[in-house]
Nucleic acid binder design. Structure first.
Length: 504
RNA sequence: GCGCCUCUAGCUCAACUGGCAGAGCAACGGACUCUUAAUCCGCAGGUUCGGGGUUCAAGUCCCCGGAGGCGCACCA
């Protein structure tokens, strides 16, 4: 991108870049503390503020600058004879960072201001901030140069601030209920805990391929086996799949595990967690999402997958049906059933294609087929089902939870049938994890676990239609020229240890 | 991965059925003693996403490629 010429403009070139600036008050604090000041009145109090210049109006012997910091805006008021280097102050550019000290006054026209005595240029903006009225609205520019977007579009900044508050509350909420936060590996020798295709990476010294985790699930349950009765992790997981307004290849997942509990306990926990966060972040449990209202006030409806399919299609299905019968019903509903699918997968497919997207109000969809739930415990009253539920809000899955399968022999058998699916070309089927089986042999108490997509939750609470709006730097295709991958960085032909020389 | 749509100055956008690529803001030079998207005068700014084709003539029509948005598929 072309650099903006600075011409005769006040510049840092040839000057010493400041190492620090002592800020005595934020813009918001100044506004609050001096709100009672009358037009033309001078407070007698001196403050130092700092921020970015959003607007500048040099006018003869006066200079008016709108300075924005992380929480608000304040005007700098430069007056000839009072402000140091007034001419230079007026030549600062939109986007420059400046620190200024002076008396808090309200101008005759009523604008609360810092009447500058001294000031210092903290950093200069070589590219500017876009259109001063319309800012930057090009979606691609907003994501590729998010730092610019954050200055120019207040909603973008507000969303990320709210996301941070949401996660902060979430931590406190869980900690208040006896959960402790843990961190488990992101580099996995076996990508387990979910059905998804992983990213592959390589460790040079070990000369081993490793996977970026698709879920922290198995390690978290090993911590339960290790005696951590209530654990959670909030962390990034990676799935090598398509990108859409609801999918980012790396996303943030909450997983929690509670010993001595079953999936019914988590139903209560889930609806309380989401409704409490909604109240905390938006002030209400009646969310506005798009042009509709989503009422997350507990209790949420509980219904089995089979009841919901029946409601939405008028067709009664069951996992006990012969596969041929299920195929016939599925094709009647326009749902193709692939070879190699069992009845459970067929039922799940019918549910997902005909029913899930039509569920608006929160529903806890209960009792998934065991066949498609390889880590969930068999239902206590139906052998073909698992004690599993998903929380569906606004037609999308928000949470997935189950009573955990603790029997190592049963788990081995489930892994083996997954491996059989893999052998038949299902790349998302799970791999057998011997370390996990070995851990189960040391004894997992009755435990229930749940995963919640944090980005999806943020979308619901912050009324975002695209997942990218709640992620600071969403994954984009590398733009020509500005991206340097390993191959183009000149390291492609450099092997093993030699590479360290270049990367240090 | 497939389908539809979009891409013009730093930013936001114009340019009729193909007929000299423009404006506002930003930037640059200047004026201005309380501004609020200040105002005024002046100046400059382009590989119209890239490549090829049709045509006397292409921002505009056709083909190939790139990036983005939306939908589908996959998933959370």
């Amino acid at each position: 991108m072309e650099l903006r010429g600075r011409g005769g403009m006040t510049s840092l070139t040839g000057k010493e870049r400041p190492y620090r600036f002592e800020v005595s008050a934020s813009a918001a604090e100044v506004c609050k503390r001096f709100s009672g000041l009358e037009p033309g009145e001078e407070s007698g109090a001196s403050v130092s503020v700092a921020g970015r210049i959003m607007l500048s109006r040099p006018q003869g012997r006066y200079v008016f600058i709108q300075l924005k910091d992380s929480g608000g805006s304040i005007q700098l008021f430069g007056v000839e004879g009072v402000a140091k280097d007034l001419k230079e102050l007026g030549r600062l550019s939109l986007g420059d960072w400046v620190g200024a000290t002076g008396e808090v006054v309200r101008t005759r026209r009523g604008e609360l201001s810092v009447k500058v005595t001294t000031w210092v240029l903290l950093a200069e903006s070589r590219h500017g901030l876009g259109d001063k009225w319309k800012g930057v609205s090009d979606v691609e520019l907003r994501y590729r140069r998010r730092e610019l977007d954050l200055w120019v579009n207040d909603e973008s900044r507000a969303r990320l601030v709210a996301r941070s508050a949401m996660i902060s509350h979430l931590r406190r909420w869980l900690e208040g209920r006896g959960f402790i936060e843990v961190e488990t590996p992101i580099l996995h020798p076996v990508a387990g805990g979910a059905s998804a295709r992983p990213f592959v990476t390589h460790h040079n010294s070990l000369d081993a391929d490793l996977y970026l985790r698709i879920a922290p699930e198995l390690y978290l349950k090993r911590l339960v086996i290790g005696g951590f009765e209530r654990v959670f992790e909030i962390g990034r997981v990676f799935r090598n799949e398509g990108i859409s307004p609801r999918h980012n290849p790396e996303f943030t997942m909450l997983e929690l595990y509670q010993a001595y509990a079953d999936y019914r306990d988590l139903m209560v926990l889930c609806e309380q967690l989401v409704s409490d966060l909604a109240r905390e972040i938006t002030g209400s449990t009646r969310l506005v999402y798009g042009d509709r209202v989503l009422d997350v006030t507990p209790p949420w409806r509980r219904a089995t997958m089979f009841e919901l399919i029946s409601e939405h299609t008028g067709v009664d299905v069951s996992v006990e049906m012969p596969l041929s019968e299920l195929r016939r019903l599925a094709s009647g509903l326009g749902v193709p059933v692939q070879d190699g699918w069992g009845p459970g997968k067929a039922v799940l497919e019918i549910y997902e294609k005909t029913t899930e997207a039509n569920l608006w109000d929160p529903v806890l969809v209960c009792d998934y087929p065991k066949e498609v739930s390889p880590l969930a415990r068999e239902h206590r009253s139906a052998a073909a089902l698992a004690e599993r539920f998903e929380a569906v809000l606004a037609g999308r899955e928000l949470a997935n939870a189950f009573s955990e399968l603790a029997d190592p022999d049963e788990q081995r058998a489930r892994f083996e049938s997954q491996m059989a699916l893999r052998a038949h070309g299902d790349e998302e089927a799970m791999e057998l994890d011997e370390d996990y089986l070995r851990a189960l042999e040391d004894g997992l108490p009755p435990t229930a676990g749940m995963g919640i997509g944090i980005d999806r939750l943020a979308m619901l609470l912050l009324n975002a239609q695209s997942i990218r709006e709640v992620i600071a730097f969403p994954t984009l295709r590398p733009a020509g020229g500005s991206f340097r991958g390993p191959a183009s960085a000149g390291l492609a032909g450099v092997s093993g240890d030699d590479r360290e020389i270049f990367e240090q």
